[in-house]
């Protein structure tokens, strides 16, 4: 029972992490049909910005609780600034071109942004443990857990519910769905598609930044942390179905829970879990578990 509870919590915690980092990727893909490789850069920039200011504020003697505000602010600032620059400066000029060229452009951007981080923040890692230290720890199922890690589950739920409400209960959701289903049709119905694209890209970037900013207090924020995230979030999105929020949630849960089970019961196979799930899904359902419907055009 104790082990079961621990596996469940570990799994949910890791799933939440996966969901937060992959939600932005899948939203951008769903609406804009762009596989945004520089999603990893949003994550890294979010982490760096949060860690930098949490450290600075702490040095100035300000209360550690401000850290949570910084995390949210960092995600929004990174998302808006980077999202705007990249979408308006580069991607906007490419929408008429091949989708694959756009992927390549985001790959180029990823390389550039990685090195700009090095130039801006230096090679020395940043530590921003204050928010995690503030929330202390509790004992659950015979294991001490940090409350900060558990709040991750709440954040992921919040993001998931927020996306669901936005898509299904607002006028915005209707517009988004129209654009997702058929861009040309959306334009002809008078939807300002370029504006929808800009907002979507910024939204996705904010989610990417939030992933990094929220994880920052638990890790040593060091160069190169964006690369691993791309692989993980891509795996989740492939399993769940590219462009589907529900798919990203289910994909995260499957991978997260199976991985936790493996770590506890059979650590030798833990390493294969992500890729085994991916391989099985690819063989039986190459579009992913929850692939959105596609109109067939001639």
């Amino acid at each position: 029972m104790e082990t079961f509870l621990t596996i469940l919590l570990d799994g949910l915690q890791f799933s939440s992490y996966l969901f937060i980092v992959s939600a932005g990727l899948t939203i951008i893909f769903g609406v804009m049909k762009i596989l945004n490789v520089c999603h990893g850069s949003f994550y890294a920039w979010g982490a760096y910005t949060a860690a930098f200011f949490i450290g600075k504020f702490s040095d100035m003697g300000l209360p550690d609780a401000l850290g949570f505000l910084i995390i949210i602010a960092a995600a929004i600032v990174v998302g808006v600034v980077l999202g705007l620059i990249i979408e308006q400066g580069i991607l906007k000029h490419m929408y008429h071109r091949d989708e694959v060229l756009i992927v390549l452009a985001t790959f180029g951007l990823f390389l550039v942004l990685e090195d700009i981080i090095l130039i801006a923040f230096g090679t020395d890692p940043y530590f921003a443990y204050q928010p995690m230290a503030l929330l202390e720890s509790v004992e659950m199922g015979g294991v001490i857990r940090d409350v900060y890690g558990l709040t991750l589950i709440g954040v992921a739920t919040f993001v998931a519910v927020g996306c669901w409400l936005l898509l299904n209960k607002t006028k915005w959701g209707v517009i988004l769905k129209a654009v997702i289903f058929d861009r040309e049709m959306g334009i002809s119905m008078g939807i300002n598609v370029p504006f929808v694209y800009t907002l979507t890209f910024i939204g996705g970037a904010i989610l990417g930044g939030l992933g990094g900013a929220y994880i920052a207090p638990t890790i040593s924020v060091a160069p190169g942390l964006g690369t691993e995230v791309i692989v993980l979030s891509f795996a989740v999105v492939v399993v769940g179905g590219m462009g589907s929020i529900a798919g990203a949630a289910i994909g995260s849960l499957i991978i997260g829970l199976l991985r936790a089970l493996a770590v506890h019961e059979l650590p030798q196979v833990e390493l294969f879990v992500v890729f085994a799930v991916m391989a099985i899904v690819l063989v039986f359902r190459p579009e992913g578990l929850f692939a959105p419907a596609k109109p067939r055009k001639i």
């Binding site: 049909k33 596989l35 989708e99 694959v100 992927v103 692989v231 891509f234 795996a235 492939v238 590219m242 390493l271 294969f272 992500v274 890729f275 991916m278 391989a279 690819l282 190459p286 579009e287």
Partner: peptide, 28 residues
């Protein structure tokens, strides 16, 4: 046999996914 049914970005990404599986297996 799988790939010939896909085009555009899906073709590009399915290939990525398959390469990642091989990468994962070798790395581990």
């Amino acid at each position: 046999f799988i790939m010939r049914n896909y085009r555009d970005i899906f073709f590009a990404m399915l290939n990525t996914a398959i390469s990642m599986v091989l990468y994962g297996i070798i790395v581990k």
